[in-house]
Design a protein around this nucleic acid. Sequence first.
DNA 1: CGGCAGGCGGTTA
DNA 2: TAACCGCCTGCC
Length: 291
Amino acid sequence: MEQGNNVYSIEGVQDFFPAHVFDCGQCFRWQRQADGSYTGIAGGRIANVSFLPYEENADSGRLRVVSFAGGCADDSAAEMNFWRTYLDLDRDYGNIKRTLCRGDHVMKKAVKVGWGIRILHQELWETIVSFIISQNNHIPRIKGCIENLAICFGEPIGSLMGKTWYDLPSPEKMAGLTVEDLAPVKLGYRAKYLIETAQVIVQDGLPRNAQQLAALPGVGPKVAACILLFGMGQYEAFPIDVWMARVMHQLYGVEEKDRRAMEIYASQHFGRLGGFAQQYLFYYMKGLDQR
DNA sequence: CGGCAGGCGGTTA
DNA sequence: TAACCGCCTGCC
């Protein structure tokens, strides 16, 4: 372990599992390590997150965060608080799961598979950039694009696990770039969206509601729903992509290409917990696909 | 090689 | 307002 790192252990954590949290499609800057832990960057901090159940199949265990605070001159308590918030550790997911599963056999199976999912408190700018890039793209390529964007145009934060980590470029930095500048990042037609969105944000500030969000170039209904859910704490948001459309049709019997009917179904059955429902169902469907 | 993927924006009718 | 279609890129 490198010098200057802080280690935090949180005991008695339930409903948390790194692979479920970091591999359910909500974030793109966390990398799986050989031991099943994840290393990534958030809020200008680099960390490795692992979970050790107290015994095999135990429903609680020890959550461990090894962190390099980088430029953030936090004291220990403030940094620990940052990670508690970022990882959403103070929310009762047991209660959420019980509510969602009541009378829903599909959800019971989904929650059994992705029992350790939590919705991260990601920075708004990062979620905007990430999900504009995500459109019409596969996860590995989305991760590659974001990584390259950070390396080429972002600031170095520090190193952890033998690697230097870079923050994303700020809106100001991005607003000053051209499509030609961004060519090495291979964002394709999304580069233009990113630059124009950055320019709007430099002028008007970050979006504060769904309407301002939808006005950003490259932000349509699906991308907006993801940003609302992952970056703005709007937990009723229910992003419907091709995978969720499959879930709604194949598992809930909603008409195949009727997105409106799917939104109505989600609103009526999942309500304010729509975003949590979406994550369990999405992770479940992706797992089914891999068999 | 044509088709397609965590869609969007612009153009039609 | 619904239905098409082109789009960068990478991968089958």
